[in-house]
Amino acid sequence: MRAAQRGDARAIDALVRELSPLIGRICGAIALDEGEDAMQEALIAVVGNLRALREPAAVRGWARRIAVREAVRVAKRRPVTADADAVQARDVDLDTAMDVRAVLAKLSPDQRAVLVLRDLDGMAESEVASLLSVPEGTVKSRLHRARASFANRWMS
């Protein structure tokens, strides 16, 4: 990590590859169709600001925060093409990624961010609130709406 902060290209490459599963998971689930753009912008923001990170051990939490911010920003910039009607019109296969994606597409980027951090990354509500810089009550209400929406889609 220190080598990456000093500008060692090989260490930077290793860091990019190490962080990419975390960032890819967040950007894929929040930005959906724009996930690749969000991931690229998140990685560029992480690497471009690496020298400003004072505590190298905190790199994953810092990268997660940047990935969520970029994924929400990119998702809001370009609306997702939701095809949830198609999901409702046929038998839902709960095991396929395509169905999950269609259900996620019906949620707002902010709702997806809360859902991803809480249910995919397993963060506590207080941690999610801190990461998103919103009150814990906002996290609870977004999570409730997201889960309810998710459940309704899957049951329909």
Partner: peptide
């Protein structure tokens, strides 16, 4: 349940590394 995810492709990897150098 499988969540959508994004894999690191070589061009994104290149652009990320390049971002370290002003």
């Amino acid at each position: 349940m499988t969540w959508p995810t994004v894999e690191l492709d070589p061009i994104t990897r290149l652009r990320a590394i390049a971002a370290a150098f002003p």
